[in-house]
Design a binder for these strands. Structure first.
Lengths: 225, 225
DNA sequence: CCTACCGATCGGTAGG
DNA sequence: CCTACCGATCGGTAGG
């Protein structure tokens, strides 16, 4: 969306014989891809990864720059501030999460969808968002809200509300049919909490699969009926 | 436990007439309590509060010092490092949480306790630990593990294992009687996750009470049976 | 526990 | 996007 046309200033010949003070090449990408303008996306992905691993405050903009082979000041060419980078990570994460969820629900083409399979789809899609390969954006959003300004925070909160909206009618249908006994609103909060907390303990490489996890959730939250 | 006997160096008369360079009294407690040696406990409580509100990295040791009326270097008289302060907060939080849980379970004196009321006690005690007035220690432990050294982290992990141990037999009994359908281990992880996440949304001052929350959990996780 | 500091790091910027 | 830099803040310490 925000692809910027870059005007490059290629190095002209050095004016005199002064020793070139270039920093000893820690940065500099391996040239596998020309800088075609998606450097911004690379920065976002690197920031998401580092913010998730180390936390926002513990990650310096220099860390992020180094991760994509830039020098320390360069991220500020793409993002106005470190905060703006964090916000962009969260916003991007929410947009893809919402799109994934929408697609999961839309795959149900039956005229009267079974709320039980609807809930399964919602949960499974949520686990994909949390644990899919490279999906660091949403965990960052879940755990770093504190570092946003209040304006940014309320925008993100709105996106979260949009994301959670489809859960309510599904839970209401389950409640009406006796498969869910707890109040719908508290159920939604508790269920999403159980899922979100899996970020703390779930390991894709060992133990249960995401499908098994989803099964366990349905067995835990719903009555047989 | 770690009460230190303090040897104070009361100010002797100033040797000459040089203007006393005392900082303009931002710090300095209101003398309501003499410094009787529990300054360490005050530091811990202030640190827990600030770490919870702002996060560990976003809280400076100067913030903590100011919160208890000390000067910037003084916390290091009580704690070797900022890390040690964080670790002490978590350790203290876990000890009181374990004690609270033990007391809650011990209040059941029946020879064959009903696992359903046992689970209720565990959940209710956990909510007290998370949301009781001034209980900032455990939320800090839950959300700031990243900032611990690996040695510290594994000690805390052991305390968490001790804390969670009593949940397993209770959940097993419920599973055996058909009141819990999901696998016991995943159930424990998901249930504790649902509870822990309430730190993000529960507000003691409005909405449901802790008792209503506990009821909702039982209704959500257990089958009628 | 205060005083006075130090070295390191960090977000951010001007100027090309 | 690099270069060279600044001001601010921070954890921590010596010495009393």
């Amino acid at each position: 969306m925000n692809s910027l046309a870059l005007t490059l200033h290629p190095f002209a010949a050095l004016p005199d014989d002064a020793a070139p003070k270039r920093p000893r090449g820690r940065p500099r990408k391996t040239e596998e891809e020309r800088d075609d303008g998606n450097r911004r996306a690379e920065l976002l992905a690197a920031a998401a990864r580092l913010f998730r691993r180390q936390g926002f405050d513990a990650t310096s903009t220099r860390d992020i720059a180094a991760a994509v082979g830039m020098h320390s000041g360069s991220p500020f060419y793409h993002f106005k501030s470190k905060d703006a980078l964090l916000y962009a990570v969260m916003e991007e994460g929410m947009h893809t999460a919402i799109a994934r969820q929408r697609a999961a629900l839309a795959s149900d083409t039956s005229p009267e969808p079974d709320p039980r399979v609807q809930l399964r789809r919602l949960i499974r899609s949520h686990f994909d968002t949390l644990h899919g390969p490279g999906n660091d954006f949403i965990p960052v959003m879940l755990y770093e809200q504190r570092s946003l300004s209040s304006r940014q925070r309320s925008t993100i909160a709105q996106l979260q509300a949009d994301y959670e909206a489809p859960w309510t009618p599904v839970l209401e249908a389950l409640h009406a049919s006796g498969q869910l006994l707890a109040p719908v609103k508290l159920s939604r909060l508790l269920i999403l909490g159980a899922l979100n907390w899996s970020v703390q303990w779930f390991d894709r490489k060992k133990g249960a699969s995401l499908d098994e996890l989803t099964d366990a959730c349905l067995a835990l939250f719903l009555k047989p009926c």
